[in-house]
């Protein structure tokens, strides 16, 4: 269903790569909340995420984000400052501290000078800010990545397999962080089971088709996303 106030609206949107469909033309809409996108490796999950994040153009169809048609450069320019994307492997060179990493992102997001410090504090990274990225444990590195992604307070955030390398003990706390990132958050995982229970909606990509799973346990739904 596509609501008039949908954050993401795709109409007959399809993605081809190397002569084959990664996503066959499909129509869907996402309003707000945390949306899970599951699919095994090489299923086109990451390609769909980067397409939704405007870094890749859909091969066919239309795509609207936050009310802007992003198939053209004007719409992309308008919407990009309101997006955040964290790839699965957000590799970073040795020797760069978490503070520098977030400050670097803050510069490109054109945020005020104090925004980087504020988000480091919000993500409980103040003590770890002077550590180099390579030296941080996985959960803190993810927090730094999330801080860099959301330093400009985006309206729509895409996270590619953020919890893949996170230990179970840290997982619940980080799920809470992820849910509070933005009004609309799209998260991917290889297995739908990793997304059910805390995502408001879960889609599965299989054989180049997007299918919505109806078995979503709404344990976390009591806490609205973006809070």
């Amino acid at each position: 269903m596509i609501a008039d106030f949908s954050t993401i609206v795709a109409r007959d949107m399809g993605i081809r790569r190397g002569g084959r469909w990664i996503l066959r033309p499909t129509t869907f809409g996402i309003t707000s909340g945390v949306v899970g996108l599951a699919g095994p490796p090489c299923s086109g999950r990451s390609a769909l995420l980067t397409t939704l994040a405007t870094l890749r153009r859909p091969s066919v169809g239309e795509l609207e984000l936050l009310g802007h048609d992003v198939t053209g450069p004007a719409g992309q320019r308008a919407v990009r400052p309101r997006l955040g994307l964290l790839p699965h492997r957000f590799g970073w060179a040795a020797g760069v501290t978490a503070r520098e990493y977030v400050a670097y992102a803050a510069y490109f997001k054109a945020t005020p000078k104090n925004a980087a410090e504020a988000i480091l504090e919000r993500f409980e990274l103040t003590d770890a800010a002077e550590f180099e990225m390579d030296m941080l444990p996985a959960d803190l590195r993810l927090r730094a990545g999330l801080a860099a992604t959301c330093v400009h307070r985006p309206d729509l955030v895409f996270l590619d397999e953020p919890l893949g390398s996170i230990a179970d003990s840290e997982r619940d706390e980080l799920i809470g962080v992820v849910r509070a990132l933005a009004p609309a958050v799209v998260v991917t995982a290889p297995d739908p089971a990793e997304l059910t229970g805390w995502c408001d909606r879960v889609f599965t990509i299989a054989r180049a088709r997007l299918i919505e799973s109806l078995e979503v346990c709404r344990t976390w739904s009591r806490v609205p996303a973006g809070v």
Partner: peptide, 12 residues
Amino acid sequence: HRLGYLRGLSAR
């Protein structure tokens, strides 16, 4: 190219 997620989705 891998930094597109920071530098591409930019207000600048």
